[in-house]
């Protein structure tokens, strides 16, 4: 049986800018930052209280899985905001929202009381969007 998730991917358009966003703005920790040759880089970060889940900041670039056409299509879709990547949680949504806004994070939706909970939606520097929910909200 499956026991746990260890790695997941967020496709990004620029790894250096994504590093700044996820580490300096969201406050995530760098887990692995390894040069893979020819400009390639394996970069993973972890949420502050979930060090066992590596989020790979996967560059959308030609090579490996992606041909030129795929890169163009993915770039368009990511920039368009077509990809909702994940749900993050926090203990206090209003405080987290205020802090992230002060750091320049763009929100698609401010904290809102929904029938399913208290949530906001923010975008990363590439265009991926995430739900940010308050635990017990």
């Amino acid at each position: 049986m499956i026991t746990k998730m260890t790695h997941t991917c967020v496709y990004v358009l620029n790894q250096e800018s994504a590093y700044d966003f996820y580490v300096n703005k969201l406050g995530f920790n760098v887990h692995t930052d390894a040069p893979m040759g020819e400009g390639a880089r394996w970069l993973t970060v972890t949420p502050p209280e979930q060090p066992e889940l590596e989020i790979t900041l996967f560059l959308v670039a030609e090579g490996g899985m992606f041909d030129k056409e795929t890169v163009a299509a993915m770039t368009t879709l990511i920039k368009k905001g077509a990809f909702g990547a994940a749900v993050f949680t926090c203990n206090d949504l209003l405080a987290t929202y205020e802090e992230l806004v002060s750091k320049g994070v763009v929100f698609k939706k401010p904290p809102t009381k929904e029938f399913y909970g208290f949530e906001a939606l923010f975008m990363d520097d590439s265009g991926n969007w995430f739900s940010l929910a308050q635990i017990n909200g």
């Binding site: 260890t6 790695h7 692995t32 930052d33 390894a34 040069p35 893979m36 040759g37 390639a40 394996w42 790979t56 090579g63 490996g64 899985m65």
Partner: peptide, 24 residues
């Protein structure tokens, strides 16, 4: 990590990218 970065990459991703050469 510098000497043997492949140790830190899941095999499936490494293989897909062709990151299996000895120089990595």
């Amino acid at each position: 990590m510098q000497a043997n970065p492949l140790r830190f990459v899941p095999n499936c991703f490494a293989a897909t990218h062709g990151w299996t050469e000895p120089q990595y």
